[in-house]
Design a protein around this nucleic acid. Structure first.
Length: 476
RNA sequence: GGUGAGGUGGCUGAGCGGUCGAAAGCGCCGGACUUGAAAUCCGGUAGGGGGCUCGUCUCCCUCGUGGGUUCGAAUCCCACCCUCACCGCCA
């Protein structure tokens, strides 16, 4: 069975996993898991013992049978009969054992599915320094930033001299998106980016990707967005997130058992992390720093009625994603987490987008994370309408930085050999981290809304201008 | 989509029913030689799981994956996955 969570650790300290699951509000029957594990180990030991005996007999009698068969060649009559009898006697010795082994194996096999099912559901326990909470409401703000001369907590109109438009109004008035035709083509939560909407979309993606590649030395990758189930399970998105993923049903289409289903990935993380599945890496190759820009697909099951309008919650978008795969060292992994968050903060500052960092509480972590920090960008057009009917603005999630220890790499069977240069040490599961660099078109919301002008135009922030043909503004 | 060949350790590649977890070469590690290095020589070198008297201990599993035949399978049979070559189609 593949490594999910470390069964040894679970046996030694089941409470840690039970409490961790509870803090995450994820139901999982650790008691039952321990029972099944114990039962399996008992059967395994017994089967091993029987098989060892069987092997011993076979090893003993094998060469003898071979020798006797050699003597049998060309012989006839009573002499041949005697030899044949001897051969049969030798051959029959392991038969009883064989049946016993088969029985044990059958019992073992019947145990595996339920064991595996539970094992796959056990979440990574949250780190001790993650605040315990019941929902996203209990996330804790770490810090916030806004460009000089603008304060998100004060009314937009008072500071900028006009009432802000929401991104919906901006994209309509400036001709940046066409929702009607998007819906015509693909149903709800679909859109078409038009003209400068598409230009801006490509500009921010390229800007973010270039930042990671040319400033931070990440390796640019194009990875599949259509992947096997293995990759979804390995990266920890399945089984819990199965409802969130689009399925390309190749299995039933073929009408037979051949072929397998494929899934559309909801993040480039799946492709990047899946790259080294089942590999043993050289320690000297670590850390691996990858960045990809990929189209992401999400069913948004369970989000019916939420954020139905505009570019916020949509089924398909593009995302620049960073992952780091490093040695199994908590301090190193924590340092990378901070650094990866720092890249995003720097990008947001360079684009003059007010934002804040949230330490996610235990309930908001999801099964795979030990720790997660969200970054929310200020969206002046979001939130409840104020007394004058214009939006008051709100922070909206645009980034999410996860620290996973070896949770993913266990599932992906992704290891390195420890022990210095070309070391001869043990194989160890890598640690992994991931963080959004920039997701668009959601990011167009804070970009357009924060940089809108009184005349309805939108100023293109300086760093994006090279990606927009040198232009300074969109609109009149 | 059609036809053919093939998937073996970090790599190349032999093995085609028993002593094979597996020849040989390369690579890598350790040692000898050397002022140092190269060359040479000697030795070592897959992964996973279990047991205890925890050790230069022991057992089990793994030769693409899953089944089957057999006393015994890397080797024979079936299905699937994948790779390569040629043909057809095609952004």
């Amino acid at each position: 069975m593949d490594a999910m969570i470390d069964l040894k650790q679970l046996r030694e300290n089941p409470a840690r996993f039970a409490l961790g699951a509870k803090a995450k509000n994820i139901p999982v029957d650790i008691e039952r898991l321990l029972e099944l594990d114990g039962e399996r180990r008992r059967l395994q030991a017994e089967a091993d013992r029987l098989r060892a005996e069987q092997n011993r007999l076979a090893k003993e009698s094998g060469p003898q049978i071979g020798k006797l068969k050699g003597q049998l060649k060309g012989k006839h009559g009573p002499e041949a009969e005697a030899l044949q009898k001897e051969i049969d006697a030798l051959a029959s010795r392991p038969i009883a054992l064989k049946q016993a082994v088969q029985e044990m194996e059958a019992r073992l096999a019947s145990l595996e599915p339920s064991l595996r099912e539970i094992l796959l559901q056990v979440p990574q326990p949250p780190d001790a320094d993650v605040p315990v909470g019941r929902s996203a409401e209990d996330n804790v703000e770490l810090r916030r930033w806004s460009p000089p001369g603008f304060d998100p907590s004060a009314p937009f109109a008072a500071q900028r001299g006009f009432r802000p438009k929401s991104h919906l109004e901006l994209v309509r008035d400036l001709g940046l998106a066409d929702f009607e035709r998007g819906v015509k083509l693909s149903g709800s939560r679909s859109y078409v980016l038009t003209g400068d909407g598409m230009n801006l979309h490509q500009a921010v993606l390229r800007y973010a990707a270039d930042w990671m590649v040319y400033r931070e030395g990440f390796r640019a990758m194009s990875v599949p967005v259509l992947v096997k189930e293995e990759a979804m399970v390995g990266t920890g998105f399945f089984p819990a997130g199965r409802e969130q993923a689009y399925l390309v049903d190749e299995k039933s289409r073929s009408g037979g058992p051949e072929g397998y289903d494929l899934f559309l990935t909801g993040t480039g993380e799946v492709g990047l992390m899946g790259l080294h599945m089942d590999e043993i890496l050289d320690e000297s190759a670590l850390p691996l720093k990858y960045v990809t820009v990929s189209t992401c697909f999400r069913r948004e099951a369970g989000a019916a009625g939420k954020d139905t309008a505009g570019l916020y919650r949509i089924h398909q978008f593009d995302k620049v994603e960073q992952v780091v795969i490093c040695r199994a060292d908590e301090a190193e992994s924590r340092a990378w987490h901070a650094r990866m968050i720092g890249y995003v903060e720097a990008i947001l500052r360079s684009l003059e987008i007010p934002h804040r960092l949230l330490q996610c509480c235990t309930a908001d972590l999801g099964p795979k994370n030990a720790d997660m920090v969200d970054i929310e960008s200020w969206m002046p057009g979001r939130g409840e309408p104020g007394p004058d009917g214009s939006p008051t603005g709100a922070y909206g999630e645009t980034h999410s930085a996860s620290r996973l220890y070896d949770f993913q790499c266990r599932r992906l069977n992704m290891r390195y050999r420890s022990g210095g240069a070309k070391g001869h040490g043990e194989t160890v599961f890598c640690h992994s981290l991931n963080n959004t660099v920039l997701a668009s078109p959601r990011f167009l919301i804070p970009l357009l809304e924060n940089h809108q002008n009184a005349d309805g135009s939108v100023t293109i922030p300086g760093p994006l201008r090279p990606y927009m043909g040198g232009r300074e503004r969109i609109g009149p």
